[in-house]
């Protein structure tokens, strides 16, 4: 039985197509999902970890907060989802947004947030943090380039 292939991002689809595989736009790739998710969450964690010592002086409290950082960040993300959803509700009320789900806007927000944090890491971080920022920015740029290329390929096929 042939495994059906589907990717959400243009870059993944383009790479697969260049490799001669038949793909479609679908959220079916665990690698893509877990990779991007860990990167978004990881970059936020690292940035929060860098900011934490500026506000917390006591060593014990610092250690405790560092340990609880992923959980605190998860709670922060839950709050962000809610706040962005309120903004989307406002957009819907004024007829500026009508998609059935809110995740496209939430996606834009989190891509924007991670890009800003990555730029900060590249500008002000140590070498490995610059690499981490680059790990987000590089594929992001390649993905943006892949979108028009994929469209051109689709037009040629028609």
């Amino acid at each position: 039985m042939r495994r059906q292939e589907g990717y959400a991002f243009a870059l993944s689809r383009l790479v697969a197509r260049l490799g001669g595989r038949q793909v479609r736009r679908a959220e079916w790739s665990a690698l893509e999902t877990y990779g991007v998710g860990l990167l978004v969450f990881g970059i936020s964690c690292v940035c929060a970890g860098r900011v934490l010592p500026l506000f917390v002086r006591a060593t014990v409290l610092r250690v405790l907060l560092f340990g609880a950082l992923p959980v605190l960040l998860w709670v922060t993300f839950l709050l962000l989802y809610y706040l962005v959803s309120l903004f989307i509700r406002l957009l819907r009320r004024f007829g500026l947004y009508s998609a059935p789900t809110n995740d496209p806007v939430q996606h834009l927000f989190f891509v924007w947030l991670t890009t800003v944090l990555s730029l900060l890491l590249v500008a002000k971080g140590s070498v490995w943090l610059q690499w981490l920022g680059g790990l987000w920015l590089g594929p992001l740029i390649l993905n943006l380039i892949s979108i028009p290329i994929e469209r051109l390929l689709d037009q040629d096929l028609r």
């Binding site: 959980v71 998860w74 839950l78 989802y81 789900t101 995740d103």
Partner: peptide, 18 residues
């Protein structure tokens, strides 16, 4: 229902894990 319509798909694994 709120989660699946608001959380970007790549953040679902982290959200579901916690």
């Amino acid at each position: 229902d709120f989660g699946v319509t608001n959380v970007p798909f790549y953040l679902l694994p982290v959200t579901i894990f916690f």
